[in-house]
Design a protein around this nucleic acid. Structure first.
Lengths: 126, 126, 126, 126
DNA sequence: GTGGTCTAGACCACG
DNA sequence: GTGGTCTAGACCACT
């Protein structure tokens, strides 16, 4: 289920974090589901267990999972634990970044809107 | 004219690159305009001269500026020198990234579209 | 009677130990009362029997219960069997820990005293 | 300045976190001050650099420090970034824990109050 | 078997 | 020189 690109500039632990959040937003994983154990996931994607631990640290920090000693890691069903103001600020920053990149690539507003719709179609569950 | 946020996770050299490109796409800087010298810019924004050198290297690599021996760095008016296929791929990747972030922040498609329009309104010269 | 929070960072066996001691200091359980069997308690709170065994081991070590062959576990009425010096040292350590936490949370002495009084009112039998 | 007890049940990284926060609440360290580098602190207290990294991770998560690539770690002056409701909840939990421990050790309210005052006198800057 | 902590040591990106 | 990432492998606590 998890796919890692070892030579990507995006850190491996970040790829794992994003893929877990993606799975939740797309309904593949739900509240109460159990993630693979640290050792098991490390084996599946052939990375060091410490790298998985770091990913799980971030997922716990973001309120995505809870860990239970000796039991495992379980999904809360959420993908963020930020307050509304902070969430909006991060959304705006993400889009501002994408728009800036698009303009730098010499695209106009229409082309950027089209790219957004394509991305939404790919990722949005609805 | 340049504003550096030293506490940002975005590297300082990257902030400089983006701000030069932003100035071009927004019409604040035009073809033929001269950038400050490395020393001068490093002094203005109080960063390490090596960091400015790195930013100018990247701007030259991207075709944004040309260096003329003993005269300084001049804007070409362009903000990219990539071929169309690569440009489209990067645009799609940028929007995919932003959409993913938005969905992880528990926003729906409408909220993400609204944030895009707000960002376009802020950044688009038209 | 026992309430376990599986998502708490406090280990489950520790929660059981504390709740038995709480029941004694608040007069809900008295000398001679019988605790449920390991199997029965494990069933009631849906935890692993080994976890209950560990809790009962600690309660016996602390002099809170005595085990009688084939009869079960009975309360002694005490919640500690430490000598006075050790008791005082642990009390001081517990309060030092709480004060440190309070100061880190940016509270002043008055707010910490108020929180202590509230906690005493809740827990003190008198 | 930092003192580590390697055989304490409290993890080393947690000891480091608490000592940095203590230093801030007691005015020994102030906003803008620079913490030792990861390697330097690891050398000072003779622990592995990764352990220091973990402590700095937590300090950053709590808003106590900001990290700047290639520059170092700097204090924000704060010791928490929680909202008021969460802060109060944690204060109450900390005192409840201490009171519970005190009652289990067979102390009465007066003795617990006295221990609190002693702890405040030791730790409070005022 | 699970997560939690720690060590040892390497390579890269940034300023 | 600084922080960021990753690997390899050990030992302990909890269920």
């Amino acid at each position: 289920m998890f796919r890692i690109q070892p030579h990507s500039p995006e850190p491996i632990f970040q790829q794992l974090v994003d893929q877990v959040k993606d799975a939740v937003t797309q309904g593949l994983l739900r509240e109460g589901d159990k993630l693979p154990s640290v050792r098991e996931l490390a084996r599946q994607v052939t990375v060091n267990p410490n790298t998985v631990v770091k990913a799980y640290d971030l997922l716990e920090r973001d309120g995505v999972i809870v860990r239970r000693q000796g039991a495992g890691c379980f999904l809360t069903g959420k993908t963020t634990n930020l307050d509304p103001a902070e969430r909006q600020a991060r959304l705006d920053a993400a889009l501002a970044q994408a728009v800036s990149e698009g303009l730098h690539l010499d695209f106009d507003a229409a082309a950027i809107r089209a790219a957004l719709e394509a991305a939404l179609k790919r990722q949005s569950p609805g």
